[in-house]
């Protein structure tokens, strides 16, 4: 072998070695087999230097086994208090979701207290909670559950008393806090079982489930015609559980002109939002009332950060310091 060729091979091998070492890990998700799929769309994340596409509807995974590096690394976490961290990331999707921002909050239930607050007008005629009504000691507050007109849909437990009976549906998830402060995720089959509901001090229900307990995306979110509108775009709000037991709250905002148009209900589709929850590391997740209802507050050393909605809601999850 000529010396020049030999040296060339050495260089190629060295570069290849470095390239292999530098290749990021494969996204921790199971690729889905081809099927009569989702409408064409994609999601990119701003890495701080460039847009990086990380999800496509025609290659959407069926299951998330861990966070997607590009998405998870795009969040610069800030500490609001012990047990509460928050950050933002910029996303670019298709159609009305071409410019989005996601507000992401991680909550450690072991270090904080979780409670449900409700608010109605004097005659009970209307729901009346907004982030501006969040109690002064709230570190974080977000609207939860769904509602028809004034009262929350589904199961509601306040201060240990059942206020409203459980609702039913295959894609419902109940989130309950027990007397020790631990959070339980309860599926649609178990929520009517009285023994499962024992010891619960606060609970609410919502839908649709975005990720089941093992990071799997429910079948109705993977293709059209199975009861979930997989095409509609809206501002989204969701709550997830990270493998270490922390909660992950995510609110998407329209981001065309900063926060001034943030409450316009343009955003991802439900499958895209499920992907975002998975890419941020959630192993299970449920959608909350997004659209014009979605609103969130975070208080940190810099002050109070609010992302307002256009509608008053009946109920909110409020995070305070543990007494």
């Amino acid at each position: 072998m000529p010396v020049r060729a030999w040296r060339g091979a050495v260089r190629v091998a060295a570069i290849a070695f470095v390239a292999i070492a530098a290749t990021p890990l494969r996204p921790a998700a199971d690729r889905a087999p081809a099927r009569a799929g989702l409408p064409p769309s994609s999601l990119a994340v701003w890495t701080g230097k460039a847009w990086r596409e990380w999800w496509r509807s025609d290659e959407a995974p069926d299951r998330w086994r861990g966070p997607h590096n590009a998405v998870a690394d795009a969040v610069r976490w800030r500490t609001a208090a012990d047990g509460v961290e928050w950050g933002e990331l910029r996303l670019a999707g298709s159609g009305e979701a071409r410019r989005l921002r996601a507000v992401v909050v991680r909550i450690d239930p072991r270090l904080v207290r979780l409670r449900l607050d409700t608010a109605f007008t004097a005659g009970g005629e209307r729901a009346a909670w907004t982030v501006d009504d969040a109690r002064p000691d709230a570190i974080m507050a977000v609207n939860v559950g769904q509602f028809v007109r004034t009262l929350p849909w589904g199961w509601v437990v306040l201060d240990g008393h059942q206020f409203l009976a459980p609702g039913s549906g295959p894609l419902t998830t109940a989130i309950a806090v027990d007397s020790s402060g631990a959070v339980r995720w309860i599926g649609p089959d178990s929520v009517k079982d009285a023994s499962v509901r024992r010891g619960v001090v606060a609970a609410f229900q919502s839908y649709p489930t975005l990720l089941t307990a093992d990071g799997e995306i429910p079948a109705p979110l993977r293709e059209p015609g199975r009861g979930i509108d997989v095409e509609h775009r809206d501002a989204r709000l969701g709550l997830g559980a990270l493998p270490d037991g922390r909660l992950l709250a995510v609110l998407t905002r329209f981001d065309a002109l900063g926060e001034s148009l943030g409450s316009i209900p343009f955003g991802p589709t439900i499958p895209e939002f499920a992907a975002l929850m998975g890419a941020l590391g959630a192993r299970q997740a449920v959608a909350l009332d997004g659209g014009i209802s979605g609103q969130m507050l975070v208080r940190d050393a810099d002050g109070t950060h609010t992302w307002r909605g256009l509608r008053k809601v009946p109920m909110a999850l409020v995070v305070t310091r543990k007494q």
Binding site: W51, A92, S94, R98, R99, F254, A256, L257, L261, I264
Partner: peptide, 11 residues
Amino acid sequence: KRVNRAASNPG
């Protein structure tokens, strides 16, 4: 391009 187009016509 998509993102910039959105910024030019936000509402």
